[in-house]
Each structure stands twice: as C-alpha cells, then as structure tokens.
Design a binder for these strands. Sequence first.
RNA 1: GGGAGCAUAGCUCAGCUGGUUUAGAGCAUCUGCCUUACAAGCAGAGGGUCCUUGGUUCGAACCCGAGUGCUCCCACCA
Length: 911
Amino acid sequence: MATQLSKNFEHQSAESNWYNHWVDSGYFYSTPDNREPYTVVIPPPNVTGVLHMGHCLNNTIQDILIRRARLQGKNACWVPGTDHASIATEAKVVQMLREKGIAKSSLSREAFLKYAWEWKEKYGGIILQQLKKLGCSLDWNRVNFTMDPDYYEAVISVFVDLYNKGLIYRGKRMINWDPKAKTALSDEEVIFKDTQSKLYHLAYKVTDESGQATADTIVIATVRPETILGDTAVAVHPDDERFKHLHGKYVLVPLINRRIPIITDEYVSMDFGTGALKITPAHDMNDYQLGQKHKLEVVDIMNDDGTFSEEAQLFVGEDRFVVRKKIVPMLEEQGYLVKIEDYPNQVGYSERSDAVVEPRLSMQWWVKMQPLAEPALKVVMEDEIRFFPVKFKNLYRHWMENIKDWCISRQLWWGHRIPAWYDNHGNFFVAKNEAEAKLQAAHKLLLAKGEVITEASLQHAAQSLQLVQDEDCLDTWFSSWLWPFEVFKGYSNPGNDDVKYYYPTATLVTAPEIIFFWVARMIMAGLEYEKQIPFKDVYFTGIVRDEKGRKMSKSLGNSPDLLEMIDRYGSDAVRFGIMISSPAGNDLLFDVKEESTLKQGSFFVNKMWNALKLIKLWEERGIATAEAKSQESFSEINWPNFWFEARLQQGKKEINSLMDQFRLSEALKTVYSLIWDDYCSWYLEWIKPDFGTPINGHHFNSAIRFFEELMQLLHPFMPFVTEEIYHSLKERPTGDDLCIKVAAAENELDLLLPGNTPSGYLQQGELLKQAITAVRDVRNKQQLKPRDEIAIAIETSQPQVYQNIGSIFGKQVNAQISFGTSSKAGSAVVNIESDKFFIHTNQQVDSAVQKAELLKDLEYQQKFLESVSKKLSNERFVQNAKPEVVEFEKKKKADAEARIRTIEESLHSLQ
RNA sequence: GGGAGCAUAGCUCAGCUGGUUUAGAGCAUCUGCCUUACAAGCAGAGGGUCCUUGGUUCGAACCCGAGUGCUCCCACCA
C-alpha cells in the first residue's frame, strides 16, 4: 500500500513525537539485570545554566555512546543531574537581588538561602529539558542534584571522614581580598588589567655585626613601596656574583629600621629589576610561599578595609593608596630612593566592586592531596583508566606529581556548609551536626576539668554549650568528586544493588579544562571510597570555537542560540553539524555565520528522505516477483546486492573499529559516505528499473534491508530521522523500534555471498565504478550529451570479469557494450587497468583532446615507472628492505609497464 | 617564566608500525546537466614547496635537532 510522504522530513513535530514515544516506552530507563552494563554519568551542568555549544557537543557525544551501547545489547544507563555550582549560582542570585535593590549584606544567611532556593526552583533544570530536545537518552528516573538531601549528607560525611583520617586540616592561605566589599574572591572573580605602574628602586642599608647600619646598601625594586613596612627579608639569587658578599648578612627596613635577613633563593631572577627582591609574606602570594620556605616572620600591616594597621608602625589608619603617595617623598627625602622607572604590569581588580585586589592571609580548610594523588596517578599511568586522546596522560602526570593541597573553603553561603563548630575559646569541633559537635566539646570540657565522663554528664554539659558553625561553604568540586558513585547512593548506602551493578562507569565525557578540578579528584574519591576506579575511559572533547578561532563565550556574544538552531535545522542536523568536525581532544571550529555544517546535516537528512521516497515509489509501481530462470541470471540479477552486502559489512567493521577508538567524527564520515555515495549514488542507481518496468523483487527486498541496516548504523548520531525512516520503510509491530533494535555482533556478520569472496565483489565494484566514471569523463570532455547513444567495445584479456557487471555498465553510461578488438578510426579510447575501452559515436571525436588526455596519463605513468625502477635498481634497497616491500615494488613496476603499453597502443590506434 | 600541543588543497581535517603516497576526504571553486527520488540535486574536473632548515635511513608528510608561526594550560614575576 502506498504511503504518502511529505516533501521533507518534518523534524519539528517528528522529533518531539519520537522522543516522547521512546520515553513512554521506557527505553531509557535502566535497572540492573544480567546484561553487561554500560554506564555514563553526565558531567552535571550548573543548575541554573542554559544549553550552550559546549553542552551540545559534550552531550551529543555521550548520547552517541549510550545509544550505540544500547544497540549492542548492553544495559545502557545514562544518569542525568545538575550541580549547585556555588560560585556561579550565588553570583547570579546576588545580581538578581541587586536588580531588585537588595544588597546581600543586608540579608541574613537564612534569608539569602531562601532566595537562592527560590531561584533554583524557578530556573533549575531548564537545561535538562533542553537536553531532551537534543535527543539525549537519559534515564529520567535517576535525576540527581548535588544538594539533594542524601547527597548533601554524603558530602558532609566525607568531610568528617577525611578530617578524622587526618586528611583535612585548617591552615592560612593567601587569598584575593576585596577591601571595598570586605570579602574573599575566587581566582575567577579577579580581572587582571594592564596598568602603567612605576618601579621604585630603594636602597636598604646593610648592617654590621653589631646591628649598626654600614655604608653598604642593597637596592631592591618594587611597585608597591608602601608594603616595605611589612618586609621580613630581602632575597637574592644564590649564584648572583653581585650579592655573594652579602649572603648571611642583614639589612634595615627603611624608615622603621627593622632588621631583616638577606636570604638566597633560585626563585629570584638575576636579570629582573636590581636582582634583589624584598619579601613581604603578608601581602604577596609569592612572597608568602618564599616566607614559608624560609620560615620568615609574617607582618600583616593592613586591616580588612585596606587601611594600615598598628603593625605597620607608620601611617596607621591611612588607606594603602594614600600611604603610597606619602611614603615616596619620605623615602626620597631620607635618601632611600635611587630611581623611579615606568613599568607596565597587570593589576588585579575585583569583578564585583572594581577595587584593586589585595592579597591577604586568611584561615582556610585544606585537603592533603599527596596520599590521595598517588594511587590516582598510578591507575592512569598503568592504563587502568584510559585517556582519549592519550596526550592528556602527560598533563595529568605532571600535575599529579606536583600536586598542591586543595583549598576547599569558600566565603559563600550557597553550598554545603562546613561542618565545623567553634566555641569561644578558639577550639573547633568537626562533626556531622551541631549535636555531635557539642558532645565533642562537652567531652573536651569534662576532660579538662577532670570530671567523670558518662553519657549523662556529657549530655548535660553539652546542653549548656554555645557553639557557632563555620560560616563558609565547601568548594563545588568537593561535592562533584563523589558524583560517579553517589548518584547511585554508593556512599550513603554502601554496597547497594545499583552501585554494585553500574559502578565503575564505562566512559566519562568531559572538557580537558577540568581534568584537574574534576577528573583527577573523581579518581581519588572513587579509589578512596569505592576502592575502584570511577570510569574505564575518559574522552576529552575539544573546545568549541567560532569561525575566527575564538572560544565561544557569553561575553563575546559569539555563541549561537542552540534552541533556535534546533528549531530551524532539526536536532539531527545540529548533532551532525557538531560531530562531523570534532575529533577527540581537538578544538572544533564551528562556523556560526555560514552554518555550513548544519546545512550539510540537513542536506543529508533530505538525501535520505529522498531515497526513502524512491523506494516508496517503486513499491507503488509494483514489484516483479518472477524467479530467476537460471543460476547465471540469479548471479547477475543479484550482483548489486552481493556487492553492497560486501561493502556494507566492510563499512560496519570500519565504523566499529573507529567507534571503539572514540574516533566519532570519522565514524560519522564513514556512515555518511556509505549512505550517500555507496547506497544512493551507486547501489540505488544500479538496481533502478527501466522506465515503466517494475522493480525486481530481489532488488527491492535487499534495498529495504540495506536501508534498515544503514539507519541502524547512523541511529546513534541522528536518532530521529533514522527512526522515522525505519518505520516508514515497513509496517512494524508495536515495540519494533530502531532505538532498541540490537544489531548483529561483528563476528556474526554473515556474508552469504555465493561463489565469491567479499573482496572479489569489492574489486569488481571498484572496476565498475572506475569504468563508469572514465566513460562519463570522456562524454564530458567530448561534449556528448547523456542522451547521445554510444557504443563501447572492450578489449580485455579476461572478459569473465565483466560478466555480471556488463549490463549495469552499459545502462549507467547509456552505451551498447561489446567485447573484442574493434578499434575504429575516429573513436575515443580510455584505459582501465590494462583493458581498453573503445568508444564509438556518430559525432566527430575531438582527437586532440583525446590525445592530450592519453599523453598526460602516459607522462604520469612514465614518471612513476622511473621512480619505481630507480628504487629497484638501488642495491641497498633490495638488500635492506623487507622482502614483501621489494615484491610489491616489483609488482608496481610490472603494472606500470603494462599500463604504459596499453596507453601507447591506444595512442597508436588513434592515428 | 614553567608545561603541553599544533603547522598537510581556499577552509576544516584524515594520513595508525617510515615502504599500495607522485599525499586522501568533506566543504568551497570550476564545467556540463531542470536525466521519470533528490537543483538542498546529478555527472565530471581542477586544486599541494606536506611551515623552514639540518640530520638519521636504502627510503621521511611520518623519526631526531634547530628555527619560525599559532594555540592551550599553569604561575602570573618584584
């Protein structure tokens, strides 16, 4: 029965219909069973995020992997979820409040969090809805959020556990301080601006043994002369000859005459400034580290609002910039100032208040990384976890071998609050909740008082205690590092069926920029808490750039509106467009203006749609069911089917191997060309019936079966149009959907090719294609219209090769075919291998064109022969090269010689 | 400053263990076609100093050294 197909694939309605059908049929839901699991956990997008190109690439890749696993008969489980993203979300909420005229500082923590949760309820999860439009086959029964009650508890409990294991400690750290907003800033919130600064050269007096100033001085260079009041050393390079006589001596800080040591460190560069560096541990990141290394005193000369403190001795209560203005003339007056140079440098400004950021020491929480990093490095180096592409192994090793402790506290409210409580004696207690913290405090108190500790006395003492919880939150990554197992409640409910079945997960797909933030830490947490790696393979995607090579970002405004693109081109086309040029780990240029790959994608959809229309047209016109009369005619009739079968199996193997290596864009290119070139351009043309004749039944049935198999191959990449075509090809019983149709395993690929090997069919096919193309080329060059009839005489030593393809050949080039030597004056000639094709036509052949073509070919072959002969006459080549290589060169030589003979004969016949 | 990577057709990229490479694909270009699925198409064609340079080798796009240009990550230099 005839099916009415619309002119185009109507993606807008079809895509959402299919998606709903898949979800309603439960195809994306997974529960443990006896199949092999294939698990992927989504890198949780920010809860308030919206879909951008990065997500699109990342999630398309995951969907391709998951859908392929499903078609391989595995139990595919893709877990969705979102991240609370403390900094980003808090910033958005603060901005929203500011627009309403509410300052965060005017709100209590509770009131702020209420706004934040309202915001999350309103905007959270929009991105997950957008992923549905993209076709992502996520298990919607398993949505997780890093601040779900269970998850929150797991994070807190991991903190307490690591603290009890001695892996979490408190320590001072240099942070970016905003003196205007009086808050700490994360590195991401600091904007560096090019600034024209001045470099002040200051002379420090060197002291003698009694501590008195001598005439000797050492000159340092600084852009912040006001900070000299906090200096606790002067550093020089140990090999610097200019200062060797000063090693171990002391100098006096100008104006206040504090005695500080001269230290040596290779950190100091000899060729910058004066080669001598003042060290101010309290007010400079690097100085702080040097200070730690050399156990220097820390003198903090500033208050939290940027004014000078008592410690400074001078300018107490005055602003840092005022001090800078005042101190320079003072230094000059007293003879300390040697010179002032212009010096362009970068100065950090607060993203929020535009104040110049002040590096400042503060108490933070830390995770000791060394013990966690060692096993996590090992599993990657020994390929228990494989990285694609491998180049990231090096990067990973370098970082893991030089790992620094992880600062996990953030001066934010939105997130997991640090489970530490303080009493007013400077003690702190780490516990899962306030009650437990109080018990700890009570225990300590009773112990100190020497009182008897009983359950009752503890409870009693605890009741009267007042503790204050730490104000800070944990770094977002401190929750997301638990993601691969906690989405299955692996920590909160250890050893449950889900975590046993799904963990370790199969593949993690993520961006290389978070290899340290996230990937490395998940490996650590997985090994620490599940005693197993969290995933077997990590696929690093590229960075999406625009046509000018710029990273796509909101601030540049060069990120296209994805939902609009999906509306216009369809999800399949968008997926195609983004995948066709994105090899693993390589950046991918996405031409937003031209949208060329999107167009290519939608052209491809259209092409397949038209192939479907052709088959439907054949069906309408009736199918010839007559059996072949003989074995010969059976082979001849079925030759295109056998050829395509062979080609298809070859393609499948190639695609499987590419997919196994995560070479997804190449796999897609291979399917694309298999469908467009081999199936549409060659196969369908070869079986196309003559006008007015019905299609042969063997051809029709094979065409449908091949189309189904091609749709199955393409389905992971372009799920919607493939499902639609699959259903349009035939009536299907309920539940017969491409989305879950398990493909034959590679070792089951039945060739069923009678009387020949696949390579025989493939070779014959190549010959046929070559012959057709060559004759068409002659037609073009001789300006023969496709309708002009011609006759071709093939002169060949092995006519049996043409037995099954002769008639197709004749039809494709619109020619009468005969065999034998029948060169005629005025005919054109082409050479395929060592066969000659004489083309007879009623029209006058342009023999100059013919001759030129042949001579060009001849020249090429002669040069080729020359290079091969040269190689073969090189004794050392014959001696050293592998025998098979030499053999091959000999064959190349023989072939070239035969070919040259053929061309010469053809040329001769033209005379 | 430290580390990593890249450089092949106009553009985006393949080219795996050095020898089917006198280097492939897609897009773009050019020519001819409204041929009864598809002009969003069909048919055909042209297009390369494999960044430069030195070396290793019988043999280099591929391995090594140097140079040039670009990109990314980390630390952001008094």
